[in-house]
Design a protein around this nucleic acid. Structure first.
Length: 863
RNA sequence: GGGUGCUUAGCUCAGUGGUAGAGCGCCUCGUUUACACCGAGGAUGUCGGGGGUUCGAAACCCUCAGCGCCCACCA
């Protein structure tokens, strides 16, 4: 093992480039898979390890990877499994986009050919990753990807579907579902995003004269499918019309007026048009009053089969045309435009979702959700931070049935076959449909198969060794935005399939990445940043550190280029510190000298290192990434670079630093290990250069050493820091250049003699040429230490006086607050002893300070 | 409408009962044998308003105001 020389300049791209590029090539590093999500959806490449737990947002991935690296350094077994992104519209969209660039659509290829294209795309994306994952001998089983997706079927999916079906928890029904006319598929409630859009609210008079009612609508085109008008049963204005029929304009159909509790008599005219086939509420009303459902929109969102001249028009064109036509008939009573109201949009493509009557498969969630809620209520599963648990409960306790069929091709096919006589057959694994049966053409919702991920990837339904070992897993870490999509569903199925054992013990939630002002990133606002671009400039480690440093549990974080630049600077700082250390002979060879034999600075930095290790370890174990990063940052920059290295320069320069070389080597070695999960590329480079070891990835996680505690030493160093800072202040006030050497003396208690040389070096204070003849022109007092300096010229009395006056004011104020407390009888009677003692000490200290400053002021010549 | 969170230095955020913190930004100085992606020094907050509990509140309770997020079938 030997050290490698470090180049004098740290360039992130040169270190991260090659590995990083592999991951980019492998498709694991992409700014945006779906093209509709904000640009922060990226995957930071984990270098030279090991694999990906799943592909999520940058934060998901970063934080997961940090924990995983820490755990494996602690000796935990890690098993790498394929991601879950196999049945998604996102994946389908990527390939559809490729096709579009060739001027093709998926329908040109046909189902089989299309699925082959998706597989090709995915296969292209995995070779380089596998190679990286195996480098350190991790257990890798990528073949499970096939396992879950082969032939568009999987034993896990077949098994769970059949079990749920047999338990009466899966059913098929004709319902109003959310339909995306662009994706041409059904969507679950959760895949619909409600935005406030500017629409129109038009009031239309149905019927004529006495026999007329005015209704309001934001979707005028749906009137073609109206089969009733509903009013509140107690509404006297319309009592005489209940049971009558009214003529539907443009269509010429007579429709009944029905009384229904659902109608709010306060809203609008108190009368509602009822379109059972195109509105969920109306559908319910239709059921109650046995109304006909007339479908007037086709899958593309065009008016069809309405028997009117509007057939063939797109829904939005039809809306205009119908309003025009009604206006021509004088039936538009009022128009409100713009009318701001919530409109559902397809989460993937932003198309306005159309409620549509159609036959779909559903999961009956109530019983499953109850179990999932109880698992958290009973403490079987913990949500971190706890404050987000109410969100979970709110959702779990009010979940509607879940529409699971999708009219897509990429995904698990619904394992249901229909017989020639219309009979329905649900097949389990290893079962075949009889001759003449046809499989349901639809595939399952992404989240249906994703929900199985914690156990299907481990070989379930077989009782494999992996399943026994890794189910349940200890922690799931993800963003709170994914709680409902994925986490809840893993809970539902996990508890159902695994006899009440939840898939994980802890759900650790982080926030979302926001722009520099804390606002949601969005393309339209133009505040989305491109992480790939920033990574080219600052390096992947800088982004990772920034993300980790901002990751307070459950809270969103603002991300701006400045923060990333700051992280890059930190990386550079560490680079230079390590380089400097190695230039001065820092080594990991040989035993660490006995703690008691070391000099005060060495003991101090070891003691601080010990504290840092303890704290960082604890913080990472409790998912406090931001605070862990903060500890590391300040230890590395403040303690190590600004103080230890500066104070050690004297002994390095004079060649008396034999033990310090070993200590410094040790401290850096440990620090780099501690930082490795958070800045993997940089620490790998520095650690291998410093230690000559194979890789920090497989180094052991630092452990605190009980002997390395020196609380007395830490206190002394604080005093040393005070003295140095005070002298620097003085020099600064007196406009003495940093490089200017001045003669001076320390008059201090015996114990400070040990620091004399180091302090002189740092402060550039020389021994007076002839001690007896030394006449100081300025004297500073810091606690028990006097510093006498010869400025060989006039001291700037004004600057000195103003500084002392300022210090005096501060001391007097401090004294006053302490004094007030101590003269408060209630405080003395009720405050705990240690607090009283502390205040007493403070008072004594400020008293002495005031005396000292006054004495110094008195000594100043009057100006 | 239901749920939930936030309001602390110019900006973004930590801080859960004992003298207000960090990063960035700002001001002054600086080619000192790692680093200007740097070093040294400095300035900056009646901790959203008002009440209460307490010897003591940024923190706990009540209330008001503003902002945000999630969920929700108001035409």
């Amino acid at each position: 093992m030997s050290q490698r020389e470090l180049p004098s300049v740290f360039i992130p791209s040169e270190i991260e480039g090659p590995l990083y590029q592999k991951w980019v090539d492998a498709g694991y590093f992409t700014a945006d898979v779906s093209s509709t999500k904000p640009a922060y959806t990226i995957v930071i490449p984990p270098p030279n390890v090991t694999g990906v737990l799943h592909i999520g947002t940058a934060l998901d991935h970063t934080l997961q990877d940090i924990l995983i690296r820490m755990k494996r350094m602690k000796g935990f077994t890690t098993l790498w499994l394929p991601g879950t992104d196999h049945a998604g519209i996102a994946t389908q969209n990527v390939v559809e986009k490729q096709l579009a660039s060739e001027g093709l659509s998926r329908h040109d290829l046909g189902r089989e050919e299309f699925i082959k294209r998706v597989w090709d795309w995915k296969a292209e994306s995995s070779g380089a990753i596998l190679e990286q994952m195996r480098r350190f001998g991790d257990s890798v089983d990528w073949s499970r990807e096939r396992f879950t997706m082969d032939e568009g079927m999987s034993r896990a999916v077949l098994t769970i579907f059949k079990r749920l079906y047999d338990a009466g928890l899966i059913y098929r029904a004709e319902r109003i579902i959310n339909w995306c006319p662009r994706c041409m598929t059904a969507l679950s409630d959760i895949e619909v995003e409600h935005n406030d859009d500017a629409g129109e609210l038009v009031s239309i008079r149905y019927g004529d004269g006495e026999n007329s009612i005015v209704v309001a609508t934001t979707r005028a085109e749906t009137m073609l499918g109206d089969t009733a008008i509903a009013v509140h049963p107690d509404d006297e204005r319309y009592a005489h019309l209940i049971g009558q029929t009214i003529l539907l304009p443009l269509v010429g159909r007579e429709i009944p007026v029905v009384a229904d509790e659902h109608v709010d008599p306060e809203f609008g005219t108190g009368a509602v048009k009822v379109t059972p086939a195109h509105d969920p509420n109306d559908f319910e009303i239709g059921l109650r009053h046995k109304l006909e459902s007339i479908v007037i929109l086709n899958a593309e969102g065009e008016v069809a089969d309405s028997g009117t001249r509007f057939d063939g028009l797109d829904r939005f064109e039809a809306r205009k045309a119908i309003v025009e036509a009604l206006k021509a008939e004088g039936r538009i009573v009022a128009e409100k435009r713009p009318y701001i109201h919530a409109v559902g949009h397809c989460q993937r493509c932003d198309t306005v979702v159309e409620p549509r009557l159609s036959k779909q498969w559903f999961v009956k969630v109530a019983p499953l959700a109850k179990t999932a809620g109880d698992a958290v209520r009973k403490g079987q599963v913990k949500i971190e931070p706890e404050s987000l648990a109410p969100r979970y409960f709110e959702w779990v306790d009010n979940m509607h049935d879940w529409c699971i069929s999708r009219q897509l091709w990429w995904g698990h096919r619904i394992p249901v076959w229909y017989g020639p006589e219309g009979d329905v057959l649900v097949l389990g694994p290893d079962e075949n449909a009889p001759e003449g049966y046809v499989q349901d053409p639809d595939v399952l919702d992404t989240w249906f198969s994703s929900a199985l991920w914690p156990f299907s990837t481990l070989g379930w339904p077989d009782t494999t060794e992996d399943l026994k070992k890794f189910y349940p897993t200890s922690v799931l870490i993800t963003g709170y935005d994914i709680l409902f999509f994925w986490v809840v569903r893993m809970m539902l199925f996990g508890l159902f399939a695994m006899d009440g054992v939840p898939p994980f013990r802890v759900i650790a939630l982080h926030g979302l990445v926001r722009d520099k002002f804390g606002k949601k990133m969005s393309r339209s606002k133009g505040n989305a940043i491109d992480p790939l671009e920033l990574m080219d400039t600052y390096g992947a480690d800088a982004i990772r550190f920034t993300l980790a440093r901002g990751a307070n549990p459950g809270a969103d974080q603002a991300l701006a280029e400045e923060w990333i630049a700051g992280s890059r600077n930190f990386g550079t700082k560490l680079w230079n510190a390590t380089r400097f250390a190695m230039m001065n002979g820092a080594t990991v060879e040989g035993d660490l000298p006995a703690f008691d034999s070391l000099n005060v600075f060495d003991r101090w930095i070891l003691s601080r290192l010990n504290e840092t290790i303890t704290e960082v370890d604890e913080l990472l174990e409790t998912y406090e990434f931001a605070r862990a990063c903060d500890q590391i940052y300040h230890f590395a920059w403040d303690d190590l670079c600004d103080w230890y290295l500066e104070l050690s320069k004297e002994s390095f320069a004079t060649g008396t630093a034999h033990d310090s070389k070993r200590v410094l080597g040790y401290v850096l070695d440990q620090l780099l290990r501690l930082m490795h999960p958070i800045m993997p590329f940089l620490t790998e480079e520095l650690w291998t250069a410093l230690t000559g070891g194979e890789s920090v990835v497989i180094a052991e996680w630092p452990r605190p050493i009980d002997d390395h505690v020196d609380l007395v030493g830490e206190k002394l160093i604080i005093q040393v820091q005070e003295i140095i800072t005070e002298v620097r202040r003085f020099r600064n006030d007196q406009a003495i250049k940093t490089s200017q050497r001045i003669p001076g003396r320390f008059i201090a208690p015996q114990e400070f003699a040990r620091y004399d040389a180091a302090m002189r070096f740092v402060l550039r204070i020389d021994h007076p040429e002839e001690d007896v003849l030394f006449v100081p022109s300025a004297t500073l007092e810091i606690g028990a230490v006097k510093v006498e300096l010869d400025l060989s010229g006039a001291v700037d009395v004004g600057a000195e006086r103003s500084r002392l006056t300022r210090d005096l004011a501060t001391a007097q104020k401090d004294r006053e607050t302490a004094d007030i407390k101590l003269s408060n009888e209630n405080f003395m009677a009720k405050a705990p002893v240690n607090v009283v003692t502390e205040i007493r000490e403070r008072l004594a200290k400020t008293d002495a300070e005031i005396v000292r400053i006054n004495a110094q002021l008195a000594k100043l010549p009057s100006s």
